[in-house]
Amino acid sequence: METILFNLFAALAVLSALLVVVNPLSRNPVTSAMFLVTTMISISGLFVLLNAYFLAAVQILVYAGAVMVLFLFVIMLLDVEETARRKLRVVSLTMGLLSVAALFGVYKSSLETTYEKDLGSFEIDGFRSEHFESVSSIGEKESFVTVGSTQALGQELFSSVNGFILPFEIVSILLLVAMIGVILLSKKELK
């Protein structure tokens, strides 16, 4: 069941990501935005398969909700008329495709050499296998089930010993700064 769902979500994510970037039927930014929403939702499905339930919910709320609405709002605001299809420069297209394919090839081959025995057996060097065993000694299933629950994530985030309270507060300031910056940027007269 998990395998079927993984295949479904992974294929959907990659396919709609491709349609965001190189849609043969439409150059309209709105179409791209809609396919980006599909990608985000499939990625949140992948998060659920990885037991990251809270992040899956946040992914849908923030990305598929807030960010994409912002994108669509700006697209409508700019009212970009469908420009006459500019001719794609063949050189830049082929060079881009080639370089990205080369990068992906390097990544894939490095993955294959790293996880030769296809994971599970994490015993590539001493440290890793040791770490993995300490995890599995707790009881693989149980620790994996609790990992990623909202409660566990909150305890990790706000624990007083080695939590992330200070980064959390700094991020809130960052959000405030971004808000002020956006208001300043979108004033009528840009000085």
Binding site: A17, L18, V21, V74, V80, L93, G96, L97, V100, L103
Partner: peptide, 19 residues
């Protein structure tokens, strides 16, 4: 990795700022 490559391809190939 596949998603990252597709995103990079979009940054290189497409010329609309929004995309």
């Amino acid at each position: 990795g596949a998603l990252f490559s597709i995103g990079l391809l979009g940054v290189i190939v497409r010329r609309n700022l929004l995309i």
